[in-house]
Amino acid sequence: MSEIALEPTLAAEPRSRRGIRALDLAIVTALLLALWQLVGRATGGIAITPPLGTLAYLADLVQTSLFWDHLGATLLAFAIAFAISAVGGLALGLLLGLRRFAGDVAEPILAGFYTVPKVTLYPVVLLVCGLGLSAKVAFGVMHGLVPVTLFTLGAIRTLPPVLVRTARAMRLDGWQTMSRVMVPACLPDIVNGLRISFSLSLLGVLIGEMFSSQRGLGFLLVSGLAQHNVPLTTSVVFVVVVGAVLANTLMLRLGRGTSGRE
């Protein structure tokens, strides 16, 4: 059968594709480093520090407890914000996806809220939550909750009804249908939503720290700017970028694993 003939190509392709992808990655990284170097040079170090200088500064920075303190504060706020976004968004998305009318009402509202520049609401958040961790978390959730909700909702809606009928024909109860059929079927979309939510809640937390906080990488960045400590700001940006890219890659890989095609 044709399936057998397909076999060798299926097996051989990933290896060469992986080689090409590694090459792509190397080229892009080299280009970015070159651009970084160029901009650093051109601005004479008043905007950003070139790569080598940054790495040297960073090497010193990571030996201070101050750095780990700020990093820890950011990670804590982000972890809470992302957890709330992920769990809350998933639950909300499932609920709205299953309740057709509620979903029809909520979707445009959520999509509308998603397009609002949330920075404009930050003063309100501050007044409600006060300075500190809760404001950062709240701001992170405001950014991160909606994507997971919308992606989950969309995935549940486009789920082939026959899968749910199959679950019923196999005598699964409501909870089992949800956990064993609907969530796995929607997982590729849910992971995509989580990926976007991940970067947006990080963005929310960092913005929160930049505006009104005494701790966190966002605060470190702003104080670097205020003191015109260019190596410090560049280092912080570098740490955030590397962390975000790594996390994103991890989640992309996770997403590919869940779609289960290979």
């Binding site: 082939p160 026959v162 899968l163 199959t166 005598r171 796995p184 869940t258 289960g260 095609r261």
Partner: peptide
């Protein structure tokens, strides 16, 4: 209102679970 034990159903649409 429930599918009793001992009854199996096969549908027209593809109902295989793509993640398994």
């Amino acid at each position: 209102g429930e599918v009793p034990d001992g009854v199996g159903v096969v549908f027209q649409e593809d109902a295989s679970f793509p993640w398994l």
